[in-house]
Computed example of a mutant assay.
Amino acid sequence: MLDGAVAWMNGRGNTQQWGTTPYSRKPGGVERIQRYTTECAPYMAELDGVPVGTLVLGDGPSPQVPIPTSEEPERYVRLLVSDRRHAGLGIGAALLAHAAEETRRAGVPLLRVDCWAGGGGELVAFYERNGFAPTTRFLAGEWPGQVLARRIG
């Protein structure tokens, strides 16, 4: 799914967000996903029994994101990706709604996510449409990022 997302982004002229190398061939890419599935809470969306999206929840940002952890308990969306062949079906929104419900069920008051803030800001706008508000902007090298937060409760 991640390799497909890289190809889709590249096909739209976006080579900055995730680069041009398929995720499975990036140094550390496979290991990172393996850590996500063992150290975090992965969720999969299916359509007729076929995986079409995934979301990974952790207790804080990834170590490579240059921001501090929250001073209050939080859940953090570490990864959200959907199969672009099923774009427009609300898969990402459904996974974010599930993340909010899991966060609420755990009694945690804050759900955060970081994303690429480049291009025309479409990804930031997606999270805003799903109840998140921008907080901290950051640069990871030349990669512009935006942290967004959603109060749960």
Results as ranks from 00 to 15, higher is better:
100 A>F: 09
122 E>D: 14
115 C>Q: 04
117 A>Q: 02
126 F>N: 03
102 E>M: 13
106 A>R: 08
127 Y>P: 06
100 A>S: 15
119 G>D: 06
128 E>P: 11
105 R>A: 15
123 L>K: 05
103 T>K: 02
130 N>Q: 11
128 E>L: 04
127 Y>E: 05
119 G>P: 08
127 Y>F: 15
107 G>R: 09
105 R>D: 14
102 E>V: 15
106 A>S: 13
114 D>K: 01
112 R>I: 07
128 E>R: 14
127 Y>M: 05
99 A>I: 12
99 A>E: 12
127 Y>Q: 05
111 L>E: 10
112 R>C: 13
127 Y>K: 01
97 A>T: 15
107 G>V: 10
97 A>R: 14
117 A>T: 02
114 D>Y: 01
97 A>N: 12
126 F>L: 13
109 P>T: 02
117 A>I: 04
113 V>P: 03
132 F>N: 00
115 C>R: 01
119 G>H: 07
122 E>T: 09
111 L>S: 06
123 L>C: 04
123 L>Q: 14
119 G>M: 04
103 T>I: 11
110 L>P: 03
109 P>H: 00
104 R>K: 13
125 A>H: 12
105 R>Y: 06
130 N>P: 12
110 L>R: 05
119 G>K: 03
112 R>K: 14
114 D>Q: 09
118 G>K: 02
101 E>K: 12
103 T>C: 08
103 T>M: 07
104 R>I: 09
121 G>R: 00
131 G>N: 10
102 E>A: 15
128 E>C: 14
115 C>W: 04
127 Y>V: 10
121 G>S: 01
128 E>K: 12
132 F>Q: 01
121 G>I: 01
122 E>Y: 09
107 G>T: 11
124 V>K: 00
126 F>S: 01
122 E>V: 02
101 E>C: 03
115 C>Y: 06
112 R>Y: 05
124 V>I: 07
131 G>V: 09
113 V>G: 00
115 C>P: 04
118 G>H: 04
130 N>L: 04
104 R>Y: 08
105 R>M: 06
118 G>E: 07
125 A>Y: 07
100 A>L: 08
125 A>W: 06
110 L>Q: 01
117 A>M: 02
128 E>H: 10
103 T>F: 06
97 A>G: 13
121 G>Y: 00
130 N>T: 12
117 A>W: 02
129 R>T: 15
111 L>H: 05
122 E>W: 08
109 P>K: 00
104 R>Q: 11
122 E>G: 10
107 G>M: 10
110 L>V: 10
118 G>M: 02
126 F>Q: 03
126 F>M: 09
112 R>M: 08
106 A>M: 06
108 V>G: 04
101 E>F: 06
114 D>R: 00
125 A>Q: 14
127 Y>N: 02
97 A>K: 12
102 E>F: 05
99 A>G: 13
97 A>F: 09
101 E>S: 13
120 G>E: 14
119 G>A: 04
131 G>Q: 08
98 H>M: 10
115 C>G: 07
118 G>S: 06
114 D>S: 13
112 R>D: 07
106 A>N: 04
108 V>M: 04
97 A>V: 12
